[in-house]
Write a protein that binds this DNA or RNA. Structure first.
Lengths: 166, 166
DNA sequence: CTTTATTAGTTGCATATGCAACTAACTATA
DNA sequence: TATAGTTAGTTGCATATGCAACTAATAAAG
């Protein structure tokens, strides 16, 4: 009798496939929406003849508000692996948007600065970004906007403390 | 007098730098949240010893519900460039998750099918995904969940008609 | 029925990314 | 102070991705 129970249990285990309701879960919708937005962001940059990827734009933006950050901090703040940032910066340096400057306090550290071209480019980028933001939020009310941002922050908090937007 | 007006206007144009409020806009928060989630998704897969990227998981999932899709449809449904899908499938085929089968109706078309290994793997993937979904939504109420998904759908609709989740 | 246009899929090229291994430089400990 | 550990940044390797150019096959037009 005991054995029967165990066998039944095992059989049930094998049959009971875990069910995941993708259609009514946040993650897939979030992923898809982010993907759509990112795609159109890049498209807008290309249309505006900005020689810039969306990732490079984020770095430009961070430096605009916080010039002279170390690569380490910049990687952390933009949610990037430091190796990824290294190569992103190399491309941006080659294009003349930024320069690396070794710290004389700690020779391991590179401080990253915007060049004049970098600053000028960001000025051109801003209206494009603004337009995209408006398009994204065109049918979202202000209170809804507050709400969704609040929810997004809470979702992020489930994976550890985070602070600012990208 | 007329000239003065024009000159003043131009000066104002140059000074008035466009201001973008990143901190109170949806896009950056959405982007960041999606990035955090994607990172932890991949981490979970690795921890569970699933030899699978998150992108490959999405394809596996689509085929699970719609076996035999063409590469074209699969690319469209997963928001991928067809060239990107080609290479994604090549890797998945090499790993034995899927097979391509040329259509005999239209020899240009490859229909994509899950292999037994692909089906078995998806069974292992599901609980991991389910756990992640729960973690993401742990501090979001059901009505909030409905609300955020609705908003995400509306945001997507600003970039053309879309249907299902990823 | 032949020519032209379109479509499905592949490939070269460029970018972005995470991990692990590495170097150089700084910090802490014995 | 010498040795061990840590940290910042770089590089090799693997994956994913978009665009443009390409091939092969089908559809449309003459």
């Amino acid at each position: 009798m005991q054995l029967t129970i165990v066998v039944n249990y095992i059989c049930r285990m094998k049959k009971e496939e875990v069910h995941v309701d993708f259609e009514n879960s946040i993650a897939p919708w979030l992923g898809k929406t982010a993907k759509v937005i990112e795609y159109h962001f890049q498209e807008k940059f290309n249309d505006a003849n900005l020689d810039l990827t969306k990732e490079q734009m984020v770095v430009l933006k961070k430096l605009h508000y916080d010039d002279g950050l170390s690569q380490n901090d910049l990687a952390f703040l933009t949610l990037r692996n430091k190796s990824s940032l290294t190569r992103l910066l190399s491309k941006m340096e080659k294009k003349g948007y930024i320069i690396r400057q070794q710290s004389n306090v700690d020779k391991r550290v590179n401080k990253v600065f915007l060049t004049q071209k970098g600053r000028d480019t960001f000025v051109l980028v801003k209206p494009v970004v603004k337009e995209m933001m408006a398009k994204i939020e065109q049918n979202i009310t202000d209170s809804e906007k507050k709400l969704i941002i609040n929810m997004l922050k809470r979702i992020q908090s489930n994976f550890g403390p985070q602070v600012k937007s990208l």
